[in-house]
């Protein structure tokens, strides 16, 4: 049973359509990245899922059920900005959040320690830097040890060390079996931690699936023929293989091509060798998520 299912969800603000019939499903145990440029509908999607924005159409299901207070308590979420009472200390704010979540108040100390706020827990939220506010918001999502975490731009305002810490935290939590949904425009972040990804652009879903499958479609094989192989022979041999496409010359006698799903570099090597063509080099060039993202949102 999926943790979260969105079915044909749309949202309009006046004449602006922020989401156009979004359908996606998050499986248990996955780290699901929601990617998209600014204004693509990531926060709107999460806001609807978390019950603070009213969808113009479509439906949301959490844990196979209609959204309710009870199933929201099974989710720890940080949406858009850290939202706390400025005149309360970090600790007071977390105790308050624990009451709302009906979480054990003892988890407040764990959350403060995990996010490195232990020494500043008695300082007022008002005096916190953006990075510390973000840490407190992360701490709040951990209260009561929820099954699911929803993190909207979790590394906003953090320094490089903080970003690395959040990444470690996400990896550790995922290893504990938690389902994590991350919205981000930082592709590097998503590529390093996510198992699944959905790419949004102007409220449209451009692609969704496991990270490796989204990326695999963009992988190219690089062929370096042996010096005695004629280019024409190579081109003819490749043209005869239905699962090879988009042959392009690269620099210095090197060619690249795209293999259809289910075919790997070993298949290519074998097929060419059977036709008497030896390769001096063969490798797969993984495309970065960034290149693929730019391609998808072009």
């Amino acid at each position: 049973m999926p943790i979260l299912e969105l079915d044909n969800v749309s949202k309009s603000y006046g004449s602006t359509t922020a989401l156009k019939g979004l359908t996606l499903s998050v499986e248990p145990g996955s780290v699901y990245g929601l990617l998209g440029p600014n204004g693509s509908g990531k926060t709107t999607t999460l806001g609807i899922a978390l019950g603070v924005l009213r969808a113009s159409g479509g439906s949301v299901r959490w844990f196979g059920q209609a959204p309710s207070s009870d199933n929201r308590r099974r989710v720890g979420a940080l949406l858009e900005t850290p939202n706390f009472f400025p005149y309360l200390s970090a600790r007071q704010n977390l105790l308050l959040a624990a009451d709302v979540k009906r979480a054990d108040p003892r988890t407040v100390d764990q959350a403060l320690d995990l996010t490195g706020l232990g020494t500043r827990q008695h300082d007022k939220f008002r005096g916190f830097s953006l990075g510390m506010k973000q840490r407190l918001a992360l701490a709040s999502t951990l209260l009561g040890n929820p099954e699911v975490l929803v993190l909207d731009e979790p590394t906003n305002g953090l320094d490089p060390q903080g970003i690395a810490e959040v990444r470690d935290l996400v990896t550790r939590l995922a290893a504990d079996g938690k389902t994590i949904i991350i919205a981000s425009h930082l592709l590097d972040e998503v590529e390093k931690v996510c198992t699944h990804v959905a790419v949004l652009q102007r409220g449209d879903l451009r692609a969704a699936g496991p990270v490796h499958s989204i990326l695999a479609t963009a992988d190219r094989v690089i062929l370096r023929p042996a010096p005695d192989t004629s280019i024409v022979t190579l081109q003819q041999a490749l043209a005869a293989l239905p699962w090879v496409s988009d042959l392009k010359p690269e620099t210095a006698g090197i060619y690249s091509a795209v293999l259809a799903a289910g075919h790997g570099p070993a298949d290519l090597n074998r097929a060419l060798f059977e036709q008497g063509i030896a390769l001096a080099g063969l490798e797969v060039r993984h495309r970065s998520l960034e290149a693929q993202f730019l391609e998808l949102t072009r």
Binding site: L50, G51, V52, S69, D70, R72, R73, A77, L79, T81, N83, F84, F85, P86, A97, V100, K101, R102, S140
Partner: peptide
């Protein structure tokens, strides 16, 4: 109005309150 300004109504809904609560 503090709850709107600090967006804490929003956060409490996210954390599992209902509008009625």
């Amino acid at each position: 109005t503090d709850e709107f300004q600090f967006r804490t109504f929003r956060q409490q809904i996210i954390d599992g309150s209902s509008v009625a609560e």
